[in-house]
Amino acid sequence: MSDFTLQVADLTKTYNAGKPNEVRVLQGVSLNVKPGEVVALVAPSGAGKSTLLHIAGLLDTPDHGTVQIEGTDMTRLSDRKRTAVRRSTVGFIYQFHHLLPEFSALENIVLPQLANGRSEHAAEKHAMALLDRVGIAARAGHRPAALSGGEQQRVAFCRALANEPALLLADEPTGNLDPDTSDQVFAALMSLVRDTGLAAVIATHNLELAARMDRQVRLNGGVLETA
C-alpha cells in the first residue's frame, strides 16, 4: 500500500493541439496527497484546476503522465474499471450541488450507495448519520427546491461521502454561496473530512478558506507551485 492516497506525476494536457487556438492547460504537474491531508488548490478561473481535478478523479485522461490512487496506476485502466473506482473510491463536490430534483435529500444520498451494492436499510441509516453530522437531519425528507443554498450544498457533501471514498475532490465547493453561508458550509465540510480521515484536494480562489487547509498549492501557467 502506498503512503499516498493520490499521486499524479508529470501530467500534461493540451486542448486543440497543433491548432492556432492551442491551449496548454497542464505542463508537467505532479502532486502527492496523504490520507487525512487536505490540500488547497488555488488558481483563478480558467487556470486549469478543474482539468486537474477531472484527471485526478478519472473523469478525463492526460496526454502524458500517470495517476495513482492508493498505490494503483489508474492511467491504463478500462473505462469500466475507472467507473468502478470512481464509484467506490473517489468523491466529487462541485460549485453547484447537482442534486436530483425529484428525490429528497435522504434519497439523493441513498442512491449512490445502492448503486455501489449497499442494502437500502444500511444506505438510509448511513445517509441519516451523514445528514445529522452536518446539522440538517431534520431536512432529510425535503427535495432540493425546498432547501436553502447552504443546505443543498451540505447534502451534496454527504452524497460525495456516501460510499466512504478514500479521496475527495472538490471544485469551488462554496463558490456559489454568500460569505457567511460559505464559512458555515466550509466548516461542515472540513468536519466531515476530518472525521473520515480521507485525502482531499479542494480547489478555491478564496484565500481565507485555503489558509484553513493543511497546505496550499497554486496552479500558474499550467505548472503547480507551492503557494
Rank of each mutant, 00 (worst) to 15 (best):
D183E: 10
P165Q: 07
I109Q: 06
G175F: 00
M190L: 09
T14I: 14
V23D: 01
L52A: 13
H98S: 03
G149H: 11
L26A: 03
T61Q: 12
T61P: 13
N176H: 02
Q152Y: 12
P35K: 00
A138G: 10
V25I: 07
T89E: 11
L58E: 08
Q216S: 12
G28S: 08
H126P: 00
P62W: 05
L224H: 00
E225N: 10
D3P: 11
L100N: 08
A188T: 04
L207P: 05
A210Q: 06
L31Y: 01
L114C: 05
V39T: 09
L224N: 06
D183P: 05
I109Y: 00
V155K: 04
M74D: 08
Q184T: 07
F96W: 15
E208I: 14
A105T: 06
G71Y: 13
I136N: 08
D178M: 13
T72I: 02
G36E: 02
L6W: 07
S119H: 14
G65H: 10
V90E: 00
R133M: 05
R24H: 08
G149E: 13
F4R: 10
L52H: 04
L41P: 10
Q152L: 11
N32D: 14
A203W: 05
V85N: 11
I109A: 02
A127C: 01
L53I: 13
M74C: 13
V23E: 02
A162W: 10
R215G: 09
D180I: 13
L198E: 14
M213D: 09
G28F: 01
L106V: 15
M213N: 08
P165S: 14
L189H: 12
D10V: 13
G46R: 04
I202Q: 02
T83M: 00
E208P: 07
R76T: 12
D195S: 08
Q216I: 08
G28C: 09
M190K: 01
A140C: 00
P165F: 10
S30R: 11
L77W: 07
P179E: 02
F92R: 11
F92G: 05
G91Q: 04
H98K: 01
R86W: 05
E22M: 13
E102T: 15
A203F: 02
G18E: 12
L26V: 05
R212L: 12
F157S: 05
S2G: 07
L111N: 02
A187H: 10
L168R: 05
G71P: 14
A227W: 07
L100W: 00
R215P: 00
L147Y: 03
E120S: 15
A115Y: 15
T83I: 04
E124Q: 14
A203M: 06
I69V: 14
G222R: 06
I202K: 04
A122Y: 11
N21D: 15
E208T: 12
H126K: 11
V33Q: 00
G71F: 14
N116F: 09
G36L: 06
G18Y: 09
D79E: 15
L219Q: 09
I202V: 10
K81D: 15
N21G: 08
K34P: 00
S182E: 04
F4P: 04
F103L: 04
G91L: 03
S2P: 08
A156Y: 11
G221E: 06
E37S: 01
A115V: 07
V33G: 04
H97V: 08
L53Y: 07
N220P: 02
K19P: 06
R194S: 11
